[in-house]
Computed example of a mutant assay.
Amino acid sequence: MLSSTLVLVLCLVGFALIHSLLASLPVKRVIRRSLGSKADSLYMPVYNLIAVITLMPLAYLLYENPGPLLYIIPSPWRWFMVAGQVIALIVGPRALRDAPHRFRLPAQLSAPNTSEAGHLDIHGIYRWIRDPFLLSGLVIMWLTPFMTTNLLVIYILTTIYLIIGSLHWESRLVAQFGDEYRNYQKHVHRIVPRLKAYYEQ
């Protein structure tokens, strides 16, 4: 019989495969060819919905089989950790609002340095950090005020997946925006926020 940890890892791998496949440019091209301009407004909501649905089995199994408890952070420190998680939860929607052009299908599927690729247009949270999604994901996970063996395994693997995904995402942004994004990379860290806001040169 498979151990609970192995089942959880298999569920996470399944989610990662589906998530990565749907985020790939070849699949996005097929979707846009099939749906036309409707894909531009439907892709992100459907993509996020599928992500939530495919995460639900993992969350349920982790709830049912957390594994041995490793630690619980006592009060009042746990509330500081929870507050950090709440702040990180706000970052995701803010990051989408501050750079919607990065997630539009026509821009992602366009050739570099074309009118469809658009301008990098750095503002909002991106003046302090290049990948707020990566930072918020790491904060939400690792500020959990308790830890079990199975949760630790999932968090370690998810951290690796998020970092690899961030590197892949940045390679797309370099392809889309070219030297404009390379210059931005020189001034703004991917994970550690700047103390002073960056403004495009």
Rank of each mutant, 00 (worst) to 15 (best):
C11E: 15
L12E: 08
A16L: 13
L22F: 09
S24V: 04
P26M: 04
V27Y: 12
R33L: 07
R33A: 11
S34R: 14
S34C: 11
S34L: 13
L35D: 05
D40M: 06
M44Q: 14
M44H: 14
Y47E: 01
A51F: 07
A51P: 02
A51E: 02
V52E: 05
T54C: 07
L55H: 09
L55W: 03
L55C: 08
M56R: 11
P57T: 08
P57D: 03
A59R: 06
Y60E: 13
L61G: 10
L61A: 10
L62E: 08
Y63F: 14
E64K: 12
N65Q: 10
L69F: 02
Y71E: 04
I72N: 13
S75D: 13
F80M: 14
A83D: 09
G84W: 03
V86S: 11
I87Y: 09
A88N: 01
I90M: 15
P93L: 00
P93R: 00
R94T: 12
R94W: 15
A95E: 02
A99G: 11
R104I: 14
L105A: 11
Q108E: 09
A111W: 11
S115E: 15
S115L: 15
A117I: 10
H119L: 13
H123Q: 14
R127H: 04
I129K: 05
L134H: 05
L138P: 00
